[in-house]
C-alpha cells in the first residue's frame, strides 16, 4: 500500500515539475521583450560590478573612503568620470562601493523577511487553531504601525549602523510574507492534491514541504523581487538621516545626503548616487512586474 502511495506521490510531483517547466518556457518569452531584457541586464551588471568592486572601481581606496583632498569637487572629467565629492573621492568608485551596501542590504532585508515570514505563514496556515490566531494577530498588530518610523526609532534606541538598519526594517517587513503565505496555504489546503496526499497517509511536514511549499513559491518569489526596490529605498531613507550606514562607508542614501549641501553648485555629488538608486530600483520593479504578469500572480 505504501509503495503504491509513493508512486502516486511521485506522479503528483512530476505533474507539478512539468508545471514548472511550462513556467520556464514563459520566462523565456519574458526576455524577448526589450525592456524586461534591459532591466535584467541592469540588474546583472549592477550585481556583478558591485561584487567585483575592488576590480571594477577605478579608485578602490577612495571607494572605501580614503580622502583625496587635492582634487576636491571636480566636475566629471576623463580621470574622474562622474566627478569627485567634498573629500575629492571619485564618485564612480563611491557609487560602485555604495551599490554593495545598498543593493546587498536590500537583498538581505527581502531574503531574511521571507526566511522569517514564510515558515510562520506555513505553520499558521497548516495548523490553524491557536497558532493561526496568534500569528495572524501578531501580523495585524505589526502591520498597524508605520514600518519606516518604527525602524527609525529602533535605530535611534539601539545605535545606528548598517546591521541595525536592516534588523530594524525587518521588524516591519516579515509580516507581509506571513500574510501572503497564510492566504496561499489556506486556499491550497482545500485543493484536491493536498487532500489526496493526506489520504495517502503522508505526514504534516511532508505535505507542507513537498506539496504546498513548491506550489506557493511563485507568489513569494514575485513578491521578493518586487520588494527589492522598496527595500533599497528604505535603507536609503534611513541612511539619509544618519541612521543607516556610517561614514566613511557610504550607501547611496548617505551619499545623496552628503551631496545635498552642494546641490546648487556641484550637483553631481547628490544626483549621481540618487540616479543610480533610481535606475536600479526601476529595473527591479519593471522586471518584477513583468514576471508577475507572465506568471499570472494575483496579489
Amino acid at each position: 500500500m505504501k509503495a503504491r502511495a509513493d508512486s502516486y506521490d511521485m506522479m503528483a510531483r512530476k505533474v507539478s515539475r512539468d508545471h514548472r517547466k511550462v513556467r520556464w518556457f514563459q520566462l523565456r518569452r519574458l526576455l524577448k521583450r526589450k525592456i524586461t531584457f534591459l532591466s535584467l541586464v541592469i540588474m546583472v551588471v549592477t550585481l556583478t560590478v558591485a561584487l567585483m568592486a575592488p576590480w571594477t572601481a577605478p579608485f578602490p581606496e577612495q571607494g572605501r573612503g580614503a580622502v583625496n583632498l587635492e582634487h576636491r569637487l571636480m566636475p566629471p572629467s576623463s580621470t574622474y568620470l562622474l566627478g569627485t565629492d567634498v573629500y575629492g573621492r571619485d564618485m564612480l568608485s563611491r557609487v560602485i562601493y555604495g551599490a554593495r551596501i545598498s543593493v546587498f542590504g536590500g537583498a538581505a532585508i527581502v531574503f531574511l523577511a521571507a526566511l522569517i515570514g514564510v515558515p510562520l505563514g506555513l505553520w499558521a496556515g497548516y495548523n490553524e487553531g491557536v497558532s493561526e490566531i496568534v500569528i495572524s494577530r501578531t501580523v495585524d498588530l505589526v502591520l498597524s504601525f508605520p514600518a519606516i518610523l518604527v525602524a527609525m526609532i529602533i535605530s535611534i534606541l539601539f545605535g545606528a549602523g548598517w546591521f541595525m538598519a536592516i534588523a530594524a526594517l525587518l521588524i516591519g517587513w516579515w509580516p507581509w510574507y506571513t500574510r501572503l503565505v497564510l492566504g496561499e496555504v489556506l486556499s491550497a489546503k482545500g485543493m484536491l492534491y493536498v487532500e489526496a496526499a493526506r489520504m495517502l497517509g503522508y505526514g504534516k511536514l511532508y505535505i507542507i514541504f513537498h506539496h504546498i511549499l513548491p506550489n506557493i513559491m511563485t507568489p513569494v518569489i514575485v513578491m521578493m523581487l518586487l520588494d527589492l526596490g522598496p527595500a533599497i529605498i528604505a535603507i536609503g531613507l534611513l541612511s539619509f538621516v544618519g541612521l543607516g550606514t556610517q561614514p566613511p562607508n557610504a550607501d547611496w542614501g548617505l551619499m545623496v545626503w552628503e551631496g545635498a549641501p552642494n546641490i546648487l553648485s556641484e550637483w553631481w555629488i547628490a544626483i549621481v548616487p540618487g540616479f543610480a538608486m533610481f535606475i536600479v530600483v526601476i529595473a527591479f520593479n519593471i522586471f518584477g512586474d513583468a514576471l508577475k504578469e507572465v506568471l499570472d500572480v494575483q496579489q
Binding site: G229, F240, V256, I271, V281, I282, N285, D289
Partner: peptide, 13 residues
C-alpha cells in the same frame, strides 16, 4: 513605474 522608483530625497533635490 518611474514615480514609484524615485527616492523622495532624490526627487526633491
Amino acid at each position: 513605474s518611474a514615480a514609484v522608483s524615485t527616492p523622495i530625497f532624490f526627487l526633491a533635490l
